Structure formats: structure tokens, C-alpha cells
Amino acid sequence: MFGVELWVVGVVATTLMWVSYVGIAATLLRGLLEGRQWATNHLGMATALIFATCAAGHGMHTMHALLPVTGTDLTLGSAARVVFGDPRLVVVNVFAGGVAVWYLSLRNRFKLIWRGSALFDDMRERQERALDINDSVVQNLSQAKLALDQGDRELALELVDETLDDSKHLITEILGEEGSELAFEAGEIHRPDAADLSDATDGGGSS
């Protein structure tokens, strides 16, 4: 492969995995520690430790292949190079190394998830959010519908306005104030299949 031995390519790819896994594990652990979830968020801690142990394993394999450079344990080093030189393993390691680097690079796009370990939010927090939405949005919309059914359009509009304000407040709490570190950048959050109001209106009028 252009004068480079296959085992060298395998070692480079494994080194990328090792560095990326160390970075991922450190980022997740930092988020869990800063969020004080390290003792309660078992899924998050287990995931961080999986990346840490994988990093340790790939690091040891890389060191084995480099042992001949130091002149120690030539037998183990030569055996490791033979394994790293397997073309099938080289393909797997190159692909896995690329995926690891890509995964680590995503932290720049999804800072809120990485920084707060929101990828592993506690179930308690999710339940609290669901209750907030129920109390502030669902209940108000139910009352607005009831007001419309009773012909009280003014009260219905008042409840809808109140629900919009509450919804904006909830979204701000979850995503952060505009311009803050917790806020998503423009275009980072959207619904690809957003409803077409004109279609909904046409459909409602034809029924």
C-alpha cells in the first residue's frame, strides 16, 4: 500500500480509535461529574466506562505492535504486527477509527448533549418535564377547547395566548436563552416533516 506496510496502517487506525475513545470517555465522565449524576446515572456511567475500557484495550494493542521499536519483547511485537497486517482487520480498523473520530467531532454540534450528559438524562428529569408540559400546555389547551365548545371565544383565545407564553418559557428552560452556551445554534434543531398549515386548512374545509 504505497510502500507502507499494512500493519502500520492498522496501528495508525487503532491509535485514532484509542485517542477518540479517551476523549469520548473523558467528556462523558466530565459531564456526569459536573451534573452530579455519576452515582445515580448508571447508564451514563456504564457507557463512559465502556469507552474507557475500549480505549485501554486499543492502547495496549498498539503498544504491543510498537514493542520492537524499543527492542523489548520482539516475539510479542512481531506477533502483534502480523495480526495488525491482516487486510481484513486493516479495513475494519480504518472504518472503526473513522467512526470514532466522527463521533467525537459531533460534540461541537451538540454541545448541550455532551456538556450536560443530556444523552443520558435521568428518568426523574424526563418525568418532571412531562409533568411541566402537561400542566402548562395540555391542561390549558383542554380548557381552551372546552371554552370554544361552550361558545366563549374570548376565553379560548386568552388560554391559547397563555399556552404559547408557557410553551416558549419551557423551550427556553430546556434549550437555553438565545445566545447562551446552552442554546442550540440556528438550524441545529428542526422538524423535517413540519406540518403544512395550508394543507391542514384545506383538509379541514373539505370535510
Rank of each mutant, 00 (worst) to 15 (best):
M1T: 06
M1P: 01
G3R: 05
L6F: 03
L6K: 14
L6G: 01
V9C: 05
V9F: 04
G10I: 14
G10R: 00
L16S: 11
L16R: 13
M17V: 09
M17G: 12
W18P: 01
S20N: 11
Y21V: 02
Y21W: 14
V22D: 10
L28I: 10
L28D: 08
G31V: 06
E34C: 07
G35K: 07
R36A: 11
Q37Y: 13
W38V: 15
A39R: 14
A39E: 15
H42F: 10
L43K: 05
M45D: 03
A46S: 09
T47Y: 02
A52L: 06
C54L: 15
G57S: 09
G57M: 08
M60N: 11
H61D: 05
T62G: 12
T62D: 07
T62K: 03
M63E: 02
L66F: 12
V69G: 06
G71A: 03
D73L: 01
L74K: 09
T75L: 13
T75S: 13
L76T: 11
L76N: 11
A79H: 10
A79D: 12
A80E: 10
R81K: 01
R81V: 05
F84N: 01
D86L: 15
D86N: 15
V90Y: 03
V92S: 02
V94E: 03
V94S: 00
V94P: 00
F95N: 12
F95S: 11
A96V: 10
A96W: 00
G97E: 06
A100I: 00
A100H: 08
V101P: 04
W102M: 15
Y103F: 15
S105T: 09
S105F: 02
R107F: 03
L112S: 05
I113Q: 13
R115H: 12
L119F: 03
R124H: 00
R124C: 01
E125K: 08
R129K: 11
A130Y: 03
A130R: 00
D135V: 01
S136F: 02
S136T: 02
S142C: 09
S142T: 04
S142A: 11
A144K: 04
L148A: 06
G151S: 07
E154A: 15
L157R: 12
E158Q: 04
E158D: 03
L159F: 02
D161M: 12
D161L: 13
E162V: 09
L164G: 01
D165W: 08
D166I: 08
I171Q: 07
I174E: 13
I174Y: 09
I174C: 09
I174P: 04
G176D: 09
G176H: 06
E177Q: 13
E178K: 05
G179L: 02
G179F: 01
A183M: 07
F184D: 03
A186C: 07
A186Q: 12
G187E: 01
E188H: 09
R191Y: 14
R191K: 14
P192V: 13
A195W: 07
S207R: 06
